[in-house]
């Protein structure tokens, strides 16, 4: 899922670089948020029967639009592949990238992207048909492994097999859909990608119960939103919108009780600050006081987004795991709203 393509140059190679006007002003003037999302990834970003985008990343787009424009439906989705996503962002076709993108050193520093934190802690795993009886990834000596080419996944895989001194045959494909076809046709024994991706892919199978995800997680894949270098105000908005949804879960604010809690200042000053009944955090961002209120109202808090799209009761069926709040032993933690 995590391409290492550095799209900046391709985008810049022929066009002159315009002096950057604030993205916030652009979005407000346009009255619409251009949100870069995955072109098809069940649970995270996919088109439903009615032709509407649904998913975890989509909810973050909606929260952003609600916070900035006051309307969660004022979004133009820009579906992107792993290869094109950074080019679309850097060429200003999109304002923000909410597309399960791994935060790595090279991307952050060399590709000149600005990562705004982590909204999903992921890691690379393996999925095999149950009937193979494989219990651990170390039993995979000699196996054929389906993989999406040009991703960090490919490099992790090579390293994992090299470290464990076992052999394998990589079966590369362009995207998730091609890999899915290959594993269903039996071209390979194993499918490897991010654990969330495995679960999402398994959810699209006819017989998901016949597939197991192996216990080994062989890499760290922190996924999060990305903006362009050099627009700090816009980056702040994206980062703190993400944090607001997380803080909402911590503070017990949900899409159901947000109107009640935000109507007038209550006893908890942090809730008051977040929902704009005390102070003016929104004004500091260049937004109004009710920015976070609207975002939470539109999509709910972090826990709600998780459970609705990819949680245990959805076809994807992911556990909170590392993505539980820090108070519950997970890694999800937000700096304070003060």
């Amino acid at each position: 899922m995590k391409r290492i393509l550095l799209g900046a140059t391709a985008a810049l190679a022929l066009g002159a670089t315009a002096v950057s006007a604030g993205t916030l002003d652009d979005v407000k003037a346009r009255g619409e948020l251009n949100c870069i999302v995955n072109s098809g990834f069940v649970g995270f970003a996919s088109v439903d029967k009615n032709g509407k985008y649904q998913g975890y990343d989509i909810d973050y787009c909606k929260a952003t639009a609600a916070a900035v424009l006051g309307d969660a439906s004022k979004i133009k989705y820009k579906p992107a592949t792993g290869k094109t996503r950074f080019t679309i962002l850097n060429s200003k076709e999109g304002d923000v990238l909410w597309r399960n993108t791994t935060w790595t050193f090279v991307r952050d520093v060399d590709v000149k992207l600005a990562f705004q934190g982590v909204n999903y802690y992921d890691g690379q795993g393996f999925m095999v048909p149950k009937k193979l009886g494989v219990k651990s990834a170390k039993d995979l000596d000699g196996a054929s492994v389906c993989i999406q080419t040009g991703t960090t996944t490919e490099l992790n895989l090579a390293d994992f097999f090299r470290v464990n001194k076992i052999k394998y045959e990589p079966v590369p494909t362009e995207g998730n859909e091609e890999s899915r076809r290959n594993i269903l046709a039996g071209r390979c024994d194993v499918y490897t990608t991010d654990a969330s991706g495995l679960a999402a892919t398994r959810a699209t199978f006819k017989d998901p119960e016949n597939w197991v995800i192996l216990p080994e997680i062989i890499s760290k894949e922190p996924l999060g939103p990305v903006t362009r270098h050099g627009d700090d105000q816009w980056s702040d908005i994206i980062r703190w919108t993400k944090n607001a949804l997380l803080a909402a879960e911590e503070l017990g604010i949900t899409s159901k009780n947000v109107d009640e809690l935000g109507a007038k200042a209550g006893n908890n000053p942090e809730i008051n600050r977040l929902l704009g009944t005390e102070g003016d955090l929104g004004g500091m961002l260049g937004l109004d006081k009710k920015w976070a209120h609207r975002a939470i109202k539109a999509v709910g808090n972090y826990g709600e987004i998780f459970e609705r799209n990819i949680g245990k009761n959805t076809p994807v069926g992911l556990e909170r795991g590392l993505n539980a709040l820090w108070t519950n032993g997970g890694l999800q933690y937000t700096p304070p709203f003060r």
Binding site: R3, L5, L6, A10, K83, V111, T149, G150, E178, N182
Partner: peptide
């Protein structure tokens, strides 16, 4: 590359390009 055969476009023009950013 459409079917995952590792020709020159898939190796140096694909994976190497994406790893190193040397378009």
């Amino acid at each position: 590359i459409a079917i995952g055969y590792m020709d020159i476009v898939a190796t140096i023009g694909g994976i190497t390009l994406m790893q190193t950013g040397k378009e």
